[in-house]
Amino acid sequence: MSKIKIKDFNLFYDNFQGLKNINMNIEENKITAFIGPSGCGKSSLLKSINRMNDLVDSCVTNGNIYFDDKDIMKTDVTQLRKEIGMVFQNPNPFPMSIYNNIAYGPRTHGIKSKEELDKIVESSLRKAALYDEVKDSIHKSALKLSGGQQQRLCIARALAIEPEVLLLDEPTSALDPISTLKIEELLQSLKDDYTIVIVTHNMQQALRISDNTGFFLNGELIEFNETDKLFTFPENEKTENYITGRFG
């Protein structure tokens, strides 16, 4: 079943066309990876799904993205971002305690009761496999955590608002291999409850964790298929050149 449907989607930065006529369906409770060389548009597409591109003044789009059959441009943007959480390339915990980082989202959406917040904080940390490491320092600054822990905290923070979709923009590119592995395991365990879209530079990562993969080049979606098929029998020559390391 498709959670997100992208139809005839174009995106421009001033006169530069960043995405050209993208059509794809992102399936529920699957991990979908976007791969491709730098500047191919994969991050632009990811940021279009929760409308973070609204922040870029020069960015204009046409075509439609549907989330559960609702047009995202016609949805209230704060509600949309509550349902579609995002994790960024560089871990960006707020300069406050671990607890307040996670409680920020729920508080934003109206939860005030301390007991309820306590519960959310604990369960989010557990879901992000961080609870055991930080349970004694939950009121200490989040900036004291290691990079990998910070990124898992950001995932916990995104989960705390109970989204249905999780967007991750190269979440491990700033992390060491062990932290990367932990995050990959985490994503695997989360996909039963969430629809996950991950942008990655790392083809091995896409191969390891994703169910479906889209290959982007120069703003076009060259090929979109089940990950196994795309990596073993690519239909398009450009895909084959890319995954065999001939460019990119």
Binding site: F88, N90, T108, H109, R157, I161
Partner: peptide
């Protein structure tokens, strides 16, 4: 990125 992180949480 603090600002963007907060916006991405629907704030």
């Amino acid at each position: 990125f603090y600002y963007e992180g907060a916006l991405a949480l629907g704030s």
